[in-house]
Design a protein around this nucleic acid. Structure first.
Lengths: 146, 146
DNA sequence: TGAACCTCCGACCTAGCGGTTATGAGCCGC
DNA sequence: GCGGCTCATAACCGCTAGGTCGGAGGTTCA
C-alpha cells in the first residue's frame, strides 16, 4: 500500500530500513504536490493511509501512566499485580491502560499460572515511530545521523 | 537535568546524538532498579522528568487532523486559510488545532501582512521523539541502525 | 468441589477533547 | 477612518477518556 495515494503502480522500497511502508516516490520527491490555493470543496482531507494504527499508537503514548508502564517494562516482563504496585491507581484502571497498550500492540501478554505477564514490543514502538517520521526528511536526518 | 532522578551529581552524555537529555548512568545500566514485589504504599508512580513536554508532544500527535496539518507543512509554510482549504473543517477548528501544535512547539508562526504563516519545526519533532525513545535501547537500535 | 487468589468486565461519574457558531482583534486598500 | 479580509477567542455541546467500585470469570490447590 502506497502511503501517499491509492494507486496500484509498482512500489519503491523506502530508504529508511525500520519500516515496511512504501511509496511510489522516493522521500525527497513528495508524491502529493500541494496547491497554493485552497482545494475545491470536493477535496478530501489529506488523511494518510494507516491513520487508524497511528491513532492507536500516539493515543496510547499520550498518557503519562501508560508511558510509565512502558518504562517499567523496559528490562523485564511484569505481572499486572507488580505493575499496579508501582502506582497509586486501582487494579482495574491499570488493567484498562494495559488493554490500550495491547490494542496498540506496544505490549504483549501471556498467562503464567494465576498471573498474566506483560512485556514490551520494542519493534512495534520503532515501527510506529518510523511509520510517522518517514514523512519528515529533516527528522529522519536528525534521528538517524544526529 | 537527569532523566532518571533529581540528583545533582555530574551527568554523563548519552550515547544517542539526537537529544540533549542526560543521565547519571549509561543507558544499558538503568538508574532505577525495579523490585519484583510491589513497592510500599509511599511509592511514587515512576513519572519521568519532562513528562509535561512529552504529554504535549504525544497529545498533539494523537489527532489525525493535526498529523495531516504537519504533513501539509512538510515542504513549505502555509497560511491558515490555505490549511483550512485542505480540510472540511471550519476555520476556528483548524485554528485551535494549530494552537495545540504551536503549544507543543511542533510548528512556529509569524505574521505576514494579513496572513499568519505556519511552518514545521522538524528539530522539535526529532527532539520529542528522541526524549522518549531514549528509554528503549532496542528501539534505539532499530531506529538508528535499522 | 470449594476456597482463595488474580485479572478482567460492566456500570457509573467527571473532565477534557473536538466540533460548531458568533464575536472580537489586526492588517490592508480605498 | 471605514469596510473587508484574515485569524483568534469565547461560549456551547456531544462524545470519548480515564477514574472509581462491585462483581464475574479463570486458575491453583487442598
Amino acid at each position: 500500500m502506497c502511503i501517499d495515494c491509492a494507486e496500484q503502480r509498482p512500489l519503491l522500497a523506502h530508504p529508511l530500513p525500520f519500516t515496511n511502508v512504501m511509496s511510489h516516490q522516493p522521500s525527497s520527491t513528495p508524491h502529493r504536490i500541494l496547491s497554493a490555493v485552497p482545494l475545491a470543496s470536493s477535496a478530501q482531507a489529506p488523511i494518510p493511509r494507516g491513520g487508524r494504527e497511528l491513532d492507536k499508537f500516539f493515543k496510547a503514548l499520550s498518557d503519562q501512566t501508560r508511558r510509565s508502564i512502558l518504562r517499567l517494562l523496559r528490562h523485564r516482563e511484569l505481572s499486572v499485580g507488580e505493575i499496579v504496585g508501582n502506582f497509586r491507581l486501582s487494579q482495574p484502571t491499570i488493567s484498562r491502560h494495559l488493554s490500550v497498550l495491547k490494542e496498540a500492540q506496544l505490549v504483549t501478554d501471556s498467562r503464567s499460572g494465576q498471573h498474566v505477564m506483560y512485556r514490551l514490543s520494542p519493534e512495534e514502538l520503532a515501527r510506529g515511530a518510523g511509520r510517522f517520521f518517514i514523512h519528515f526528511d529533516e527528522c529522519q536526518d536528525l534521528l538517524t545521523r544526529g
